[in-house]
Amino acid sequence: MTTGRRIAMFDLFGVIARHQRPGALVDMAAECHAPLDAFTEAYWALRPPYDAGRQSAARYWGAVLRRLSRPVGPGTTERLRLADIDSWSRVDDRMVGYVRSLRGRAEVALLSNIPADHADVFGAVQPWLRDLDYVALSGKIKVAKPDPAAFRHCVTAMRAAPADFLFVDDREENVRSARAVGMTGHVFAGLDELETAVDAWLATGTASPEPGS
């Protein structure tokens, strides 16, 4: 059941912000003198607790280095932390403009997986985040997508109903989780398609069909 509100809620990376900078993992692997394949596996396999705010940056990077059998030292972990933050720092200016423009027609929220220390830096250099009605960052709310609790957190925090939301993400598993808690979901594939889906949702409460559905 809806309360009659319209809340467009967006993922960050892969939607409004760019994916990780090309070559970043190569540079970080070289920093700790590790093979790229082994570094990449450790980087992603150990990431969930860090994203969800259950682990500090120092503990995360220490775990990565130990998995790679590399020395753990504060200088190395800090260089890796800063390189990692920089690698996720780019935004799509067209998407930022579009999201801000929606506030004349709907409430606008953000739900993103991002470690707490990344979130502090990103928020400081992206003032447009302060224009949004609600921002939920996994490292701060202590739960990450696709855990349904991340979506329920936003519903509760905004004092809304799940059916009030259109959630936009580039990852199908996150959209499925949003739909499972009662939100409308849209898999992001580009701005033109998104505009059509949002217009349909604002008019009818249902996003336009996904490609191939």
Rank of each mutant, 00 (worst) to 15 (best):
A63Q: 15
P148E: 14
L65T: 02
P49Q: 08
G205C: 09
C154E: 01
A197P: 02
V64P: 01
R100G: 06
R59Q: 15
T40D: 14
A136Y: 09
L202I: 00
L166I: 05
R103P: 04
A52M: 07
G190T: 04
V143T: 04
A144S: 13
P115Q: 04
M28K: 04
V96G: 02
F167K: 01
A63I: 12
L137D: 01
L68M: 12
S101H: 11
K140I: 14
S213K: 14
V155F: 05
V91F: 13
N113R: 04
R130I: 05
L46Q: 10
A207E: 10
Y60H: 02
A150D: 01
A136P: 05
R18C: 11
Q55S: 06
P49F: 06
R171H: 13
Y43I: 03
S87H: 06
L82P: 00
A38E: 15
A136L: 11
A161Y: 07
M95C: 10
D147M: 12
L82A: 06
A136G: 10
W88C: 08
P127L: 12
V198Y: 00
W88D: 10
R152Q: 14
S208N: 08
V99R: 02
R21F: 10
D147F: 12
G23W: 04
G182C: 12
R176H: 13
D117S: 11
D117R: 05
A8W: 00
R79C: 03
F10C: 05
L110V: 09
R94H: 08
N174S: 07
L65P: 01
A52P: 02
V135I: 13
R159K: 15
V187M: 09
G23A: 03
G97N: 12
E173P: 07
G182T: 10
A8S: 05
R54C: 11
G212Q: 08
E193Y: 03
Y43F: 15
G14M: 11
D93S: 05
V168I: 15
